[in-house]
Design a protein around this nucleic acid. Structure first.
Lengths: 166, 166
DNA sequence: GACAATCTACCTAGTGATAGATAGACTGTG
DNA sequence: CACAGTCTATCTATCACTAGGTAGATTGTC
């Protein structure tokens, strides 16, 4: 895993968060990193490859964050607080979840990209679902799975709309 | 307001809902309507103009829906149900809120477009806020305005993620 | 020398946008 | 009524530019 490849992924991630995959080109990417566009193609054969790699990286990074939360906090409530803090910190930072951004561009992703994106949301949901299941809190008739879905939907929607409204 | 212009707006709206403003071109739009791209430019001088017009139209259409809900339903609970039904029907229909879609593309909109988009979300929030304010239900320490924001964030996020997960 | 990484130089296809022309409907005036 | 002028809506043709992608030469390092 070369350093340049990492750098390209990082720059691409930031750019996509800012204005979506559609407005990120091999040329602008290359310029920012300081190489030629063909060099970007060397590391990521197609734009679909780039998109998938960026989602995968984001997903595994997030997985690590969840693991850290689990190890640092014991109770469900503390863990949930820590989870929300991650999203809130991003919003405060003017940052948007990469995958929330790309959910809007879903149809312009190839199969592998769509699968990777689904993986990220499932990762979120399953973690939250386990959390809600172990918690004694139970709202009338709402399953932990439903609650988990509701939760990330709220968070993702909030980050998007927050930026639109300021 | 010519019929062709209306038709172009309608086709553009559907296309943007499907895959965003970025993947809608004057040419594809023109082909679908059955005219030349220059004729689309006649009605909408720039792409920014087109985007703004589409958002405005969507917004006023939605305003009419809210007015109808107000006139057809008396109690806050019934009105809220009717509101949710609108979003749920859209999701069931494989449809995504135009403005939720464009919230992701916010930065590629010009000032007028961004203002129009903000207008849509404010329209939603203010309607919901008034609804929650008149309702006797009050969660501990949550203002009607906050509740309204939470609510559309959840709905918007849900429509986006629903499509990603199926 | 082999291999990884980067370059130069190019291609094809598509973009938003503009210029200039034209057919037909509308409008005001003598 | 008739005619001149004007407006609407569309066309053809083209612009300058950017997109993703590719072939082949060059460089540097083990």
């Amino acid at each position: 895993m070369s350093a340049k490849r990492d750098q390209i992924e990082a720059v691409a991630t930031r750019a996509i968060k800012g204005s979506g995959l559609g407005s990120v080109s091999f040329r602008t990417l290359a310029d920012e990193v300081g190489v030629k566009s063909s060099s970007v193609h060397y590391h990521f054969r197609t734009k679909d490859d780039l998109a998938e790699a960026v989602i995968r990286r984001y997903s595994t990074d997030f997985e690590a964050i969840l693991a850290r939360i689990d190890s640092e906090h014991a109770t469900p409530i503390e863990r949930l607080d820590a989870f929300i803090d991650v999203y809130e910190a991003a919003v405060q930072n003017g940052d948007i979840c990469l995958c929330g951004m790309m959910a809007a561009e879903l149809t312009s992703l190839d199969d592998a990209g769509q699968r990777a994106l689904r993986g990220y949301f499932r990762l979120n949901e399953q973690w939250l679902e386990k959390l809600f299941a172990t918690s004694e809190t139970s709202l009338q008739g709402v399953t932990p799975a439903e609650l988990a879905q509701l939760f990330i939907a709220g968070l993702q929607g909030a980050t998007l709309i927050d930026r639109a409204e300021g």
